[in-house]
């Protein structure tokens, strides 16, 4: 991973859920890229690391790789983080994993 290149790209800017693994770890208090989540729109289950991520706007948008609908939106403001998770039906968080 070398995501300075993301900032300089002129294409659609899609990366993987891995790219926001650090931010998700801060939000959930847990490593999340291997956590399976079900898309609330199409029902497909994918690990968060396999989701499509767009992070060049003011916030981060996580989309389902199967149907393209929004799964998560995260905005890190100065003193708080806003999480919109209405696009995810569930996320499985292992208690024992690293």
């Amino acid at each position: 991973m070398d995501d300075d290149s993301v900032m300089d790209s002129t294409g659609e800017g899609r990366v993987d859920g891995n790219a926001v693994g650090g931010m998700l770890a801060m939000v959930f208090g847990h490593e999340m890229t291997a956590a399976p989540g079900r898309c609330a729109h199409c029902g497909t289950i994918n690990e968060m690391g396999a989701m499509h991520v767009y992070m060049r706007g003011p916030g981060v948008v996580v989309r389902c790789p199967a149907c393209g609908e929004v799964v998560l939106r995260v905005v890190e403001a100065a003193t708080a983080t806003f999480l919109d998770a209405r696009g995810v039906a569930f996320v499985r968080i292992e208690r024992e994993s690293a």
Binding site: D16, N18, E31, A34, M48, G49
Partner: peptide, 10 residues
């Protein structure tokens, strides 16, 4: 620095 991060691409 924060990490390590990721459990998917491992």
């Amino acid at each position: 620095v924060r990490g390590p991060i990721g459990g998917y691409f491992v």
